[in-house]
Write a protein that binds this DNA or RNA. Structure first.
Lengths: 150, 150
DNA sequence: CCGAATTCGATTGTGCGCAACTCGATCGTG
DNA sequence: CACGATCGAGTTGCGCACAATCGAATTCGG
């Protein structure tokens, strides 16, 4: 019905708009570090876990090599990471922080607090929002919608 | 601190991942209609409100002309919309549905129900999630973070 | 072992998002 | 009315996302 199509903009569009708005919030902070938001996510994984294969980055960030390969190439050009093939499995590439990549961490520590303050939500609301979003992502990830089914 | 950087992936990453997961959920349904998700949003506005200027589409969808102009050109090539300058203000371009664009609406009516069913959330949870997302978007939209401020 | 299937990463091509810019139309002020 | 400022679209350039494909390395089944 027409009503369904009007209502449709409610949750899904809200999610789409919120995600872009938050990315915009990060932009000036990350510009100062010379990073984009996806690049920042990669750096977060490397800061937290150390050397990580491309496959593992893809698993943690839910991104594929078509996104990660050129992104990592740009981080390498920026002298923040290096890549090397694993001796144990020459198919795998492990991403390592450079000294510059490691030292960038200290300049990034103020980012999360600024962002969460700007959201205008309490930490309780943020936690509740996160829980719903994770549930949504998990439920949606296991669905394969068929356009011909009801 | 290091802890902050780990926590940072919590809400913001959840939002980023959920948004992409939901877009993936739409993809097979919209592929059957020959639309991308942003194109579908434009069609929703046109189905609901009729002829709309590019500026008004941008206001409703929070997209700028750099995104909308090429998107509308593709919808025009697909024969779903036409564009014409307003006589009253030659700067403005009004977007109109073609007959094919109007008739696509009936094939889109099943999309919202399929998507909301696949989210695995109750309608109450979806409403609560939407409310938080809208608040987040509004709070974030009025913030301009300065990398040099605390 | 050995050939087929799988895995990993990179590449290609398309379509956003968004900043920065251009250009013509319009508006505001003197 | 003149003219500088502003406005609305469009264009350009860059960096994702993601589907599809490729090639090399590895694993698996017979």
């Amino acid at each position: 019905m027409a009503d369904d199509l009007e209502l449709d903009r409610q949750v899904c569009f809200a999610l789409y708009a919120a995600s872009r708005a938050v990315t915009q919030l990060y932009r000036p902070l990350l510009d100062a570090l010379g990073l984009t938001y996806p690049q920042y996510l990669v750096m977060l994984v490397l800061w937290e876990h150390g050397p990580t294969t491309v496959k593992e980055l893809g698993r943690r960030l839910e991104l594929d090599s078509g996104t990660l390969s050129p992104l990592l190439k740009r981080l390498e050009t920026a002298n923040l990471v290096t890549r090397r093939r694993l001796a144990a499995d020459e198919r795998s590439v492990e991403v390592h922080l450079t000294d510059a990549g490691r030292s960038l961490r200290s300049r990034a520590t103020t980012v999360p607090r600024k962002v969460s303050a700007a959201t205008g939500l309490t930490s309780h609301e943020l936690r509740s929002l996160r829980r719903d979003l994770v549930r949504l992502t998990e439920a949606v990830g296991s669905s394969r919608l068929d356009p011909d089914q009801p």
